[in-house]
């Protein structure tokens, strides 16, 4: 049984009005425990609506989301329990900070779960460690922190609920390149050490390709592709056609391929590229010698 099973999921805005719009159209897929999934698509491709259906913030107009085999809307009164298991970090999460201290803010989720005081303290501390927030910051007001620290504190607020599935919507938006790299590697190490499922929504193929096991590509509300990272990039040209960026190195490889070099089409990291190019070069050199 898959951790998350999504069957024919659709959502239509403003049914029956002039503004009727199908935001998500008939998406079906399965996500296993411990996977790292990247979700990519344009603004308006339906990815935000899609992820909000996974934790019951939006009720699908059609289809269902099965968490451990049970429909999350089977008992609408228990939807909060689903939200504790499927944690969601929204875009610019620092704007949701409200408590007097960072510690209390991170504790908001665990408190709503009804955990004991000791348990909450433990959760807060380990969540802060995951996002690398120094202990002395915990006693400060969240509004005194720097932008990057605020962002990490807000993410810790969701991690503290210890969700089975962690969904992050553009967590690196608005951060400087260094902050982006640091945050991404923290998310990757959280994924490794907790072995929880992580869904990461991003605009940047470069970011996603580095850490995701599988990638879901959304286009105009439809599931364009859902496959292993490697296989996704072997369809690089198709993906460019729907207007998404592919990693620069993949572009170079495709162009070299067109020039007649025999290169595999599923390369998305510089290391792989170097390896493949060196292989060709060496064979040419040895041919000349021979």
């Amino acid at each position: 049984m898959s951790l998350l099973e999504i069957n024919n999921l659709s959502f239509t805005y403003g049914t029956g009005t002039a503004f009727e719009k199908k935001a998500v159209n008939d998406v079906s897929l399965k996500i296993e425990q411990g996977e790292f999934i990247g979700i990519i698509g344009h603004t308006g491709s339906g990815k935000s609506t899609f992820i909000q259906m996974l934790n019951g913030l939006i009720k699908p107009t059609q289809g269902q989301v099965l968490l451990d085999g049970t429909d999350i809307w089977a008992n609408p009164k228990q939807i909060r329990k689903v939200r504790f298991r499927v944690g969601m970090v929204f875009q610019y999460p620092e704007y949701q900070l409200f408590e007097e201290t960072v510690e209390k803010d991170i504790a908001f989720g665990p408190q709503n779960m009804g955990l004991s005081k000791d348990k909450i303290k433990e959760r807060v501390e380990s969540a802060a460690r995951f996002v690398d927030l120094k202990p002395e910051l915990l006693k400060k007001s969240p509004f005194e922190l720097s932008g990057g620290e605020k962002r990490r504190a807000a993410i810790a607020g969701v991690i503290a609920m210890n969700p089975d599935v962690l969904i992050l919507d553009e967590p690196t938006a608005g951060l400087d390149p260094r902050g982006r790299d640091v945050l991404l590697s923290q998310i990757a190490s959280y994924h490794k050490s907790s072995n929880n499922t992580v869904l990461l929504v991003s605009h940047s193929m470069e970011d996603i390709s580095r850490i995701a096991d599988r990638i879901l590509v959304m286009n105009k509300g439809n599931m364009f592709a859902f496959d292993e990272t490697k296989k996704i990039f072997s369809r690089g040209e198709e993906i460019e056609k729907i207007g998404l960026q592919i990693p620069q190195i993949t572009k170079i490889m495709i162009k070299l391929g067109k020039k007649g070099y025999k290169l595999p089409s599923d390369i998305y990291s510089v290391d792989q590229a170097v390896y493949e190019i060196m292989k060709i070069r060496n064979s040419q050199v040895s041919k000349k010698k021979g």
Binding site: Q52, L57, M88, Y95, Q96, F108, G109
Partner: peptide, 13 residues
């Protein structure tokens, strides 16, 4: 709307 959703996601009722 956004803030409400974010807090709901943390179990606000």
């Amino acid at each position: 709307d956004k803030i409400m959703n974010a807090q709901k996601a943390r179990g606000a009722d």
